[in-house]
């Protein structure tokens, strides 16, 4: 009986310690450089000092298309406060994305991760995935997927990070 108790305590401690350790030490976001829609390139390190939201999306992903106009609204609202949004398209062929963007008004930078290196680097576990990086360049939040209403979560998180 005592052994079982001790085991349970150990397991509980391990379960509690794992998320706590994750929360206390924000990991620095690994730098990347990707070609942009306007013809240039964008590096994450150039955006140090700003709150950066990276949204991994694809045209074949319904929720991604659904949230794009809402991300545009978020960008329009918080951009003057030092906020940048990067829409990283994960498709090897950028033509469908280019076509789709003609129909949807998006003013934030769209980057093309054609060989999926950056998607792998950020460990994208769902489509869409949204990563929030603070002004010091640390990954603070990773949001997986999108369902209606998540945009208010994004807004709350961005507001918090912009104030820091």
């Amino acid at each position: 009986m005592p052994i079982r108790h001790r085991l349970a305590t150990l397991l509980l401690a391990a379960a509690l310690a794992a998320p706590a350790a994750q929360a206390s030490a924000p990991a620095a976001a690994t730098d990347f450089t990707l070609p942009a829609r306007d013809g240039g390139t964008v590096s994450l390190s150039d955006l140090r000092g700003q709150v950066v939201m990276i949204n991994f999306w694809a045209t074949w992903c319904g929720p991604c298309r659904q949230e794009m106009p809402l991300l545009q609204q978020l960008y329009g609202k918080y951009e003057p406060l030092g906020f940048t949004l990067l829409g990283v398209n994960v498709e090897p062929d950028s033509a469908p994305a280019q076509d789709w963007l003609k129909k949807v008004s998006v003013t934030f930078p769209i980057l093309f991760d054609r060989d999926n290196k950056v998607s792998a680097q950020f460990g994208v576990e769902a489509m869409p995935s949204t990563v929030l990086i603070d002004r010091e360049g640390n990954v603070r939040h990773v949001h997986r997927g999108y369902k209606p209403g998540d945009e208010s979560t994004y807004a709350d998180l961005v507001r918090g990070l912009v104030k820091e």
């Binding site: 991994f56 074949w60 994960v90 090897p92 999926n116 998607s119 576990e125 489509m127």
Partner: peptide
């Protein structure tokens, strides 16, 4: 990976 799903189509 989730970002490679287009390959299924």
């Amino acid at each position: 990976k989730p970002y490679e799903r287009q390959n299924f189509a």
